[in-house]
Simulated scan of single mutants.
Amino acid sequence: MPPEPLTLSSLPLFPLGTVLFPGGTLPLRVFEVRYLDMIGKCHRAGAPFGVVALEHGHEVRAAGAPPEQLAPVGTLAHITALEQPQPGLLVVQCRGEQRFRVDRPSQLKHGLWVADVTLLPPDVALAIPDDLRHAARWLRQVHANLRVQSPGAPVPAGSSADYDDCAWVANRWCELLPLPAAVRQHLMSLDSPLLRLELVA
């Protein structure tokens, strides 16, 4: 029998106009009260929060605006660095981990979203087939160029195994390409890393 999927209760959510992929990095400038408190608690506890794309609504809540509509699949985010350059502002670096399905979202009275979620299986490690090897070669070249042209840019330090993995290469292309958020969300939600890479290529 397959193991029961792992669920998390009342996972705090950070709705954004972008999509976080497993293995990706996400910089955040946090200034809304509802997120300052949440990020601080997650950082102190070493706990993740969920990043979900907005299907409708805006990242910064306006008074009287209708509730945001959240995408059904998100990604766990672990805080890797946090600074407070001034009161009321946090500068955060996060890393994308496992994907999850949003089961029961609810918005608390102060505006923070929480949800019961089901963790989705990690992408299966799958070697890139010969007809898609060009996608990995081009990705190596783009990363090499970025390191030369933008020395301070956060370029993934992929290993040889990463550049031979369908999911890792597809996810990094999804982050680089100028895709609409809805397309990124669709690609991230696919369970097949091979299909994700085929569509990106």
Rank of each mutant, 00 (worst) to 15 (best):
E59K: 02
P105M: 12
G111V: 11
P12R: 00
E4H: 07
V148L: 13
L70Y: 09
C166S: 11
M38E: 03
S106N: 08
P180E: 10
A144N: 10
L36W: 03
G74D: 10
P154G: 05
S159R: 08
P22L: 04
L16R: 05
A53F: 09
L16Y: 04
D37T: 10
Q69R: 12
P178Y: 14
L54K: 11
L179R: 02
A144V: 04
C42V: 10
M1S: 09
F14M: 09
W168D: 10
V183H: 05
A161H: 10
E4F: 07
A157I: 02
L54M: 12
I128G: 03
M188N: 01
P85K: 05
R44L: 15
Q141R: 06
L20Y: 02
E32N: 04
L146Q: 07
A47N: 08
D123C: 03
L89D: 07
G23H: 10
P15N: 11
D131T: 08
F49R: 06
R196V: 11
I79L: 07
G158S: 09
H43W: 15
L8T: 01
D164G: 03
P48T: 03
W113S: 06
S10W: 10
P154Y: 12
L126R: 14
L20S: 10
H134F: 14
W173V: 02
W113Y: 15
H186S: 00
A144R: 14
V183K: 04
R99I: 12
C166R: 03
L20C: 13
Q185L: 07
E175A: 01
P3E: 13
E175M: 00
P129G: 06
L89A: 10
Q149S: 03
L132F: 06
V73P: 00
E59M: 02
G46V: 06
L11I: 03
V91Y: 00
L20T: 08
G50A: 11
L112V: 08
A125M: 08
A144M: 10
V169D: 02
W173A: 00
L70K: 04
A63Q: 15
A135C: 08
G96S: 14
P66D: 07
R101T: 09
Y35W: 03
R147F: 01
P178R: 05
G152H: 12
M38T: 05
E175T: 01
L89T: 07
H78W: 06
A157W: 00
P15T: 11
E198Q: 12
E198C: 07
Q141T: 11
P105V: 12
M38R: 01
C166Q: 09
H58L: 04
V91L: 07
V124D: 11
L199C: 01
Q107V: 12
L195M: 02
R147I: 04
L26P: 05
C42P: 00
W168N: 10
L6M: 13
H134Y: 13
D116W: 12
K41L: 14
G57M: 04
V102W: 00
P122N: 12
Y35R: 01
A135E: 13
Q86D: 02
Q98G: 05
P67F: 05
E68G: 06
L28P: 00
C166L: 05
S159L: 15
Q84S: 14
L194Q: 14
A181D: 09
R44N: 14
S159F: 01
A153K: 12
L26A: 13
H186K: 00
Y163N: 06
A62L: 15
A53G: 13
R147S: 09
V155R: 08
L139Y: 01
K41V: 13
A125E: 12
P15C: 12
C94H: 05
A71M: 08
E97G: 04
A170S: 04
